[in-house]
Amino acid sequence: MKLDQLTKPWEAFSYGFLDQSAKREMRRRILKAIAIPGYQVPYASREVPIARGWGTGGLQVTLTLLKPSSVVKVIDQGADDSVNASSIRKFLRRVSSARETLDTMEADVIQSRHRIPEEKLREDQILVLQVPNPEPLRPVQPDMSEARIMHGDADYGQLWLTLYEQLVRSGRIMQGSSYPSMVNGRHVMTPSPIPRWDVPKMHMAANLTILSAGREKRIHAVPPYTRVEPLVFDDVPYRIEDHADKTCYRSGVTGFFMNELPQDDGSSSFEVSDSQYGVKHIRRQEGEPVTLGETYYREGRLER
């Protein structure tokens, strides 16, 4: 063997930014994550050109998946054009030549921070969720090694206990987003800080979901048609946010997750959080030919 067989001609940057060895590692870890739904697979997590905590985990997965023929959508808190989403989308385009889209229905890969789109994802789509803290047990066990033992033993007693304590103290479970959920009846995972509204969308979903925490170096996944059950007590139902009767002041849409906009007079108005879904409605009202996808919720109620 010669030196030049060990290396290759100098290039400023690899396709998809990550070099081949980084991508191979990502691929190996993603496969394990799919094979053991909800289990947190440790990975090396390379540095990428955005800061840790800004979606580096999701970005590494997306960079591994993209091809020039891919169509990619990036959302942050529901919006395609928020600061971080647009910066990530620009970067993805530059290093992968993939086409950008804002339309959920057009995308092959959707990288998202803290929301699942309102339009139903299909079997051929991949949702990549950015995860700040992959460990649902962190509030009851900050030591990662101990938490891992608890997952190994499927020992979720302490987690149940804190949910129960919330019930006793406040009359309801106070978990806002990141609602801990049992995957495939074995591993409790965090669905990432999506609102409670979005968690039921994961249950037996048609799409593949990959959740990746770059700073904490863990990947977990929910394959299509997999059970995702929020931890609830038999006699205390799971409660989504009370947004069913709110109407978006821009698009007039009712029955979806809303952003609350405080008004000067002390009241609130609302806009639909899935920004592009709202935009599609507005464009349709203006007479443009727009296809609206089937949604998980209809008139504020979950479609089953």
């Binding site: 806002g176 987003s177 946010e241």
Partner: peptide
């Protein structure tokens, strides 16, 4: 970064 969805979810509870 904006955290309004997460914040909204807690606010609701």
């Amino acid at each position: 970064l904006p955290h309004y969805v997460t914040f909204q979810s807690s606010l609701d509870a």
